[in-house]
């Protein structure tokens, strides 16, 4: 495992973090939801109308987000709660927020020095897709696209510093 400074020095665009982000996401779904994620064949965009975000502050500043369709978010809650999909209610936001929180935590724990040098904010969940997120950085976000039960998940890490 490399330190934060080594990682940053080795790759200023942080592209090396994409595999770590993918592994961090896959582990959350395998351990907490009991399912494997797959890689989408194409890049077709669906309406990702649920967004969970967790802020990172400290040695690494930025925002990690998980975006998906409402159906995928409800399915996550169903799996996490162990109840049928039609029994899921307002817990959906809590569930996807917690998934985002665990992906962020698991990701930072994979980089030496970042686990204790980076703090996470409580998750925020937005429903709807008619918004634009602007960040105080000109670098593009690191992005991982995976399928959860055939539904697209987009995990993004926007690094500020």
């Amino acid at each position: 495992m490399k330190s934060v400074s080594e990682m940053l020095a080795a790759n200023s665009s942080q592209e090396n973090w994409i595999p770590l982000l993918e592994v961090a996401t896959r582990e959350v779904f395998e351990r907490m939801l009991g399912c494997q994620l797959s890689v989408p064949a194409g890049t077709e965009e669906t309406c990702l109308d649920v967004t969970a975000m967790v802020g990172l502050a400290g040695q690494l500043c930025g925002v990690l987000s998980v975006r998906c369709e409402a159906k995928a978010a409800a399915l996550m809650a169903s799996r996490m709660l162990g109840v049928a999909l039609d029994k899921v209610g307002p817990e959906v936001s809590d569930a996807i927020g917690e998934v985002c929180n665990m992906v962020a935590g698991n990701f930072k724990n994979k980089i030496a020095g970042l686990a204790e040098g980076c703090m996470l904010s409580p998750p925020t969940v937005i429903t709807g897709s008619d918004y634009v997120m602007r960040s105080q950085t000109d670098s593009p976000p690191l992005e991982v696209r995976l399928l959860f039960e055939g539904l697209l998940l987009v995990i993004s890490l926007q690094v500020h510093s």
Binding site: M102, G105, N106, N109, A115, E116
Partner: peptide, 9 residues
């Protein structure tokens, strides 16, 4: 039971 995984924590 936490997402905080550092040895310090």
């Amino acid at each position: 039971i936490t997402t905080e995984g550092s040895e310090a924590h």
